[in-house]
């Protein structure tokens, strides 16, 4: 279970030379404001929102890669700041960054290195890597250097890396962002059929794609300007609105008009 309580996050804005000259204080950019959210075990939550809405920041906070400026996040009862390593123990992170691999190493060698970092080793690790290579459909390519992989193959490898220690919570940050339509279908099917349905792990996905949210998730959270505007089940959304897309646009329009009025 993930508990997010009154979480706010600010990033410092780099100072200009003139700011140092006049001893001006640092300024901050508000990335998240008072986010409260509880995610139950086995939930599959899609975070939808425009660029800069705070989706990735929230996921990185849950994954313990960032610390909140205010508030507290508990992952399986471990505080992500005070008990960072234990809170990360049950979390797998699938980064959307293609460069997050060593391009001169093969897919197998990359997984071997990251597996060792996750305290796996020996035959146990090698067997796990072979199993994951098969699961994500990279058989035959595991000994090629990552430099020769396509974007889709790198994303498959990222999924395999995220699953190395068989985490209860899998965080996917825009898993299909750089992929072509065919690869998008393949990755979606991989996540829904092989990764989630067989294990009932918690999935948290930041995405811009409504189809991805509908096919992979049972809950949708819409974010805007660092706030979680609404969270609801896909079932409930579809009963009240025809599609997730129309629900999303309604929420965003309401939010934008209320912001205009308050100004």
């Amino acid at each position: 279970m993930i508990c997010i309580q009154d979480v706010s996050m600010t990033f410092p804005i780099p100072k200009k030379y003139i700011d140092y000259l006049f001893f001006r204080r640092s300024r901050y950019f508000q990335a998240l404001t008072n986010v409260n959210l509880t995610i139950e075990d086995g939930d599959r939550v899609a975070f939808l929102g425009v660029n800069g809405a705070g989706k990735t920041t929230l996921l990185k906070l849950i994954g313990g890669l960032l610390y909140p400026s205010l508030g507290m996040i508990e992952v399986n009862r471990y505080d992500t700041v005070k008990d960072n390593i234990n809170s990360r123990n049950s979390v797998g992170f699938v980064l959307n960054e293609e460069r997050s691999f060593y391009w001169r190493l093969s897919g197998f060698e990359n997984l071997e290195f990251f597996g060792i970092l996750d305290n796996l080793h020996g035959d146990l690790l090698r067997d796990k890597i072979r199993e994951l290579i098969r699961l994500v459909g990279l058989d035959g390519a595991e000994n090629k250097q990552v430099a020769t992989y396509s974007s889709g193959m790198k994303q498959r490898l990222a999924l395999a890396r995220g699953l190395l220690r068989d985490p209860k919570i899998l965080i996917l940050d825009e898993p299909t962002r750089t992929l072509d339509p065919k690869a998008v279908i393949e990755i979606k099917s991989l996540i829904s059929s092989k990764i989630h349905s067989s294990t009932k792990r918690t999935l948290l996905i930041a995405t811009h794609r409504f189809d991805e949210a509908e096919e992979l998730c049972n809950k949708v959270c819409i974010m805007n300007k660092g706030q979680v505007l609404v969270c609801d089940t896909v079932e409930s959304i579809k009963s009240k609105h025809s599609t997730i897309e129309s629900f999303y646009h309604n929420v965003m329009n309401e939010n934008n008009s209320s912001l205009c009025i308050s100004r």
Partner: peptide, 18 residues
């Protein structure tokens, strides 16, 4: 610069050891 730091620091090895 290679983009690997995030992946490394999300592992089960603490930053000093890394």
């Amino acid at each position: 610069m290679a983009g690997c730091l995030e992946a490394i620091l999300s592992s089960q090895t603490d930053s000093k050891t890394v």
